[in-house]
């Protein structure tokens, strides 16, 4: 499937990362990475498991603190913000978790209503209902409104997870392994959904994955994270034209020759 052309504003940075370091004890995960994500752009971060891809996006939403470096999201330096400012920023960032992280004691409707009603107390019941229906239609699961998360398939849970982030109309989307654990057909549907979200909501996104099909279909740009640094950044074709043995082995493993 060919990705539709989308307007990317290269003069405006949605995310800017400079010299980011992060360690856990003796384990140095991120060793000085730089990355810019422009407005309306989908950047795929590729890399092996355990290389700090998820750590990177958790730093972007303030779930983890960087050891050093500058992380700016929508022009605000994340680790310098007060809790109130960070919460205000978080309303503009959608985070789709690898595990979907749906609230398992709530049904789909309550899952979607929760972030909206907790953050915007003045919304009428009608406005909340309309928002829920809009995002459910966007992810194609309007018929699952009253189901519990445990009754949904893995792909459906991922979609509802994305819908829950869309309900706050974010400017930035962070996808953590959106296709992991899904069958190839569902993976394609999720890839399509990521592109639709970019088109419809004009979001800037970071997509963390090690699925090359997902990277190829959704990414305007690909950044290859190996041993704590981005070894190559560019279009999918540019990155995998590189002769670096580690990049080639990554490619060969995904597309068995």
């Amino acid at each position: 499937m060919e990705k539709k052309a989308h307007n990317i504003d290269i003069n405006e940075k949605a995310i800017s990362i400079k010299g980011l370091y992060k360690s856990f004890g003796d384990l140095h995960v991120l060793k000085g990475i730089d990355l810019d994500v422009h407005k309306g752009e989908n950047v795929v971060v590729l890399g092996k498991s355990g290389t700090g891809k998820s750590v990177l996006i958790k730093i972007l939403v303030g779930l983890l603190k960087p050891d050093s470096g500058v992380v700016e999201v929508l022009g605000k330096e994340v680790d310098k913000l007060s809790q109130k400012e960070l919460d205000a920023l978080r309303l503009h960032i959608g985070f789709a978790f690898q595990s979907s992280a749906l609230y398992d004691s709530m049904d789909v409707r309550q899952n979607l209503e929760f972030p909206l009603t907790m953050n915007f107390k003045n919304l009428s019941k009608g406005e909340v209902k309309d928002s829920v229906e809009e995002v459910l239609e966007a992810v194609g699961l309007i018929d699952k409104l009253n189901q519990m998360p445990s009754d949904l398939s893995g792909g459906q849970r991922k979609r509802i997870g994305i819908a829950r982030t869309l309900i706050l109309k974010p400017q930035i989307m962070l996808y953590d392994e959106p296709t992991s654990g899904l069958d190839p057909i569902t993976c394609l549907e999720i890839n399509e959904l990521i592109n639709e979200v970019q088109q419809k909501y004009n979001t800037s996104s970071i997509i963390i994955t090690h699925d090359l099909t997902c990277a190829k279909e959704t990414g305007d740009r690909v950044a290859m994270l190996l041993d704590g640094i981005f070894v190559k950044t560019g279009s999918f074709e540019d990155v995998f034209a590189d002769k670096d043995e580690r990049i080639q082995s990554f490619y060969n493993y995904n597309f068995i020759k």
């Binding site: 978790f97 992280a101 609230y103 929760f114 972030p115 907790m118 953050n119 982030t165």
Partner: peptide
């Protein structure tokens, strides 16, 4: 299951 993190990133 990251539900607490999900709450936090939703500004709750």
């Amino acid at each position: 299951t990251e539900q607490i993190d999900a709450m936090e990133v939703s500004a709750i």
